[in-house]
Write a protein that binds this DNA or RNA. Sequence first.
DNA 1: CTCAATATAGATCAGACGGTCTAAATCCAA
DNA 2: TTGGATTTAGACCGTCTGATCTATATTGAG
Lengths: 211, 211
Amino acid sequence: MMSAEALPIRIMAVDDHPIVRQGIAGLIATQADMALVAEAANGQEAVEKFRSTQPDITLMDLRMAEMNGVSAIIAIRKEFPSARIIVLTTYVGDAQIVSALKAGAQAYLLKNTLHKELLDTIRAVHAGKKTLSPEASFQLAEHAVDDALTPSEVSVLRLIAAGNANKQIAVQLAISEETVKSRVKNILSKLCANDRTHAAMIGLKRGIIEL
Amino acid sequence: MMSAEALPIRIMAVDDHPIVRQGIAGLIATQADMALVAEAANGQEAVEKFRSTQPDITLMDLRMAEMNGVSAIIAIRKEFPSARIIVLTTYVGDAQIVSALKAGAQAYLLKNTLHKELLDTIRAVHAGKKTLSPEASFQLAEHAVDDALTPSEVSVLRLIAAGNANKQIAVQLAISEETVKSRVKNILSKLCANDRTHAAMIGLKRGIIEL
DNA sequence: CTCAATATAGATCAGACGGTCTAAATCCAA
DNA sequence: TTGGATTTAGACCGTCTGATCTATATTGAG
């Protein structure tokens, strides 16, 4: 039989904002069954700290300098396949949610989540469950699976957003202008965009490309 | 002569993320000369709470639902012209910084600010000084004053970003298509953009328009 | 292995876009 | 009130864009 004072859930917080880490630390401190054992300000640090402390649960932001959250999740789970990671971030679009879950995140929470929901999720994931916040699920449901852009379409979209004409894109990707046009056509169709500008904005909103 | 135990600096935190407010609360709690007297999750709440508590210093995020930070600053300073407000936000572009300062903010800090710098700024602003974080100053210095878009140019840029053609923009703004073209020309020139798509992205990056 | 999806490439064409030039009405500040 | 900025509007023109159509090579999944 387990002791009444079981081992606390060991947690690492990864976020580039000191204030957010402070907030997580304060929240965890009020919970008897949890302990904050590490903090990291970017993905690189997160991987190193994970190695040295091996927390039960990692709270991970996605937008960070040095190494973004998705890359950090991939790196950590490559070394520690059983790592349990909860993404805790502001709205970044359905494409980012998909990437994070594919990379091996167990849960996805938005930062405007209430304290109780965050604590519940930590305990649920520690117990082996997978969860998605209602908002995240909604974002995913909004877009059918088949409207995902192919990698080469994404590369074209990125160059469109940077202000390149089809001809310039063709040169940079070493393909013909006609091919670029084909991809643009597909992009507009998949994203339901009126024109290339609209497509770039939708790509941003959905997290397919970054600013 | 003042007592050794002077009145603490009364602070309000405005941010739509509970975790950030928790972080600010935790930080303030460690300082003997400060006290958190109010919290608000959006601009609307911020105005109401300001009325009832009249804090010495308000820490204000910019991106919030209901009422954004700039509107809240304007509303608060209309009623209380001596209100001292520190903007505490993630990078949102030079245009937003200008708006916030014009609205009457005394200081502008990025959320990746270290705790010490935030505390220093609170004390400095409470003592009547105005400060800008180095990053904010840099963002401002990057763009000359004369490359600011006029209000009508901004309205065109917003419609460009929404995926409208010049003809559609003309109808929506009740002006001729030639006029729209004139504005587009000015926008491209002022923002140093290759095309309308590039202009929309730059507008976003600089906080001239929102997603 | 086979089917479907993807990447590639081309022709054609109307319409949209962006550059250049001009110019009048309005409005605000010096 | 006078000059400067803004807003409005137009002509002209070459280029780019997006729609439609076709068609082959490659690749990955079943």
